[in-house]
Design a protein around this nucleic acid. Structure first.
Lengths: 148, 148
DNA sequence: TTACATCCTGGACTGTGGTCCAAGGTCATG
DNA sequence: CATGACCTTGGACCACAGTCCAGGATGTAA
């Protein structure tokens, strides 16, 4: 039979065995069946689902969001799936924009830093620590935190 | 005297009192002195340091990294501070690039999804779950995870 | 003095995504 | 049938960055 034990499944998906069990605990992935001994058995559908989970994670979805996505896909509510993906896209774009502001701030400071001499002349330390002109270049954004 | 209690300090920096104590536990911010009663007293230097910590966080530095940055600034090793910032910049740029790949993948999928009809026709679900042509559009990057 | 705000300590708890362990049971191969 | 690889469960533990709580002490103003 083309059914897999938990070890084979994990290997094929490139995750650890514990991770598979963790996903099961989290309500993301149940075995197709169990042997009388309690051993978990998985089919190709479960392998696809596990890969789904990993890919969605790589797209920036949390396990909670993936659980919702999986529930939606079972309900074949394509419109909601699309809306969820759109929301995620907006989220990703906001994160990119925030990181770009961070990059600007860092790059500006690095360019202005001589790289030697007294700490008082280092705009990086100045900008972070003081009230000098450098400070205004920083994003100063608590949203960056909240974004995760 | 222009010294502050922990509550005033926290208000001025826009953080919670518990957070100030947490930073102290973490070796980031010690009070200037204590009253005989044990009450913490902070000066303007501590306020600047606390703001430093928050700004550096906004730039994507972890508390561990900030601790190192503060240690460097005490040693007035400007060259190392600059190198640390440069490393962080590279890190931020890599994160931006990864997120941009994610954005492309999501945008492509959303554009191809009709938004109605059968789940079998939804490329979002297909790409995530199956082995279809959509799957290759995904970044498929575990680095995204590792990056934090 | 009486209120009331502020502060102290130590420790528990949150959520995220796992990872590891012990003690024992099972499966496949020679 | 013995060996070794594989599997089971329950629960502990990790990092991160806080957040909250109890129970008691202190500070300040009317």
């Amino acid at each position: 039979m083309d059914s897999l034990g938990i070890g084979a499944l994990a290997r094929k998906a490139g995750v650890r065995i514990d991770t598979v069990r963790y996903y099961e605990r989290s309500g993301l992935l149940a075995p197709k069946s169990r042997l009388p001994s309690g051993y978990r058995r998985y089919g190709l559908g479960e392998l696809a689902r596990l890969r789904f989970i990993r890919r969605a994670q790589a797209l920036g979805f949390s396990l909670r969001e993936i659980r919702e996505l999986l529930a939606l896909s079972k309900g074949r509510d394509v419109a909601r799936v699309k809306r969820t993906a759109q929301t995620k896209l907006a989220d990703v774009e906001a994160r990119i924009a925030a990181l770009q502001r961070v990059r600007e701030g860092l790059a500006t400071l690095i360019a202005a830093c001589p790289g030697h001499g007294d700490a008082a002349d280092c705009p990086i330390l100045q900008a972070l620590g003081g009230e000098g002109p450098g400070a205004s270049q920083l994003p100063h954004s608590p949203e960056l935190r909240a974004q995760r």
